[in-house]
């Protein structure tokens, strides 16, 4: 018995039980950057007291690890929540090119006027990525400043389709 298939139903028949399960994918990158904590509204003494050694005027650096998680339903044709190549290029363009080997206080426009803490950098990264995720939904941005310290930005969990 031969079965006729149009392009549209290959996915449904061969891959495709309806894909209404939510799945997350996570991609990790590392970048290196320097920063310092200093609030011009504080006195020198207050800056030293609040920020400690992070207030060193010359700055200091970290190897940051960034994990970006996208949630969604795998596409019936491709089996993907979002093409990892697309996610890789997005993170390269929005994060690596902006922040890798930069002095965050002076060279990243989005951080101007903010103290570049882990919380604030993660929030800036969330705002850069969130509107540009074409498929699925940005679920979490986790930024490690060091292996023992990280900040998370977490979105609402997308609802299942049915």
């Amino acid at each position: 018995m031969s079965v006729e298939m149009s392009e549209g139903n290959i996915a449904d028949r061969e891959i495709g039980v309806p894909r209404d399960d939510m799945v997350t994918i996570t991609r990790k990158i590392e970048f290196s950057a320097s920063h310092l904590y200093h609030n011009p509204a504080f006195s020198a003494e207050e800056n030293r007291r609040v920020f400690g050694k992070c207030n060193n005027p010359h700055g200091h650096g970290h190897n940051y690890t960034l994990e970006v998680t996208i949630a969604g339903t795998p596409d019936a044709k491709t089996g993907m929540v979002l093409d990892l190549v697309e996610l890789k290029e997005l993170m390269e363009r929005e994060v690596m090119q902006r922040m890798d080997h930069r002095f965050l206080n002076y060279e990243v426009a989005e951080l101007k006027g903010m103290i570049p803490t882990c919380e604030n950098i993660a929030t800036v990264i969330w705002k850069l990525l969130e509107p540009k995720v074409r498929q699925g939904k940005l679920q979490r941005v986790r930024l490690y400043e060091a292996p023992d310290l990280f900040a998370d930005c977490v979105g609402d969990i997308p609802q299942r389709k049915n």
Binding site: E119, E130, F150, V154
Partner: peptide, 9 residues
């Protein structure tokens, strides 16, 4: 979106 900070000991 919710922001959290985690420290490991």
């Amino acid at each position: 979106m919710k922001v959290t900070l985690t420290r490991r000991y």
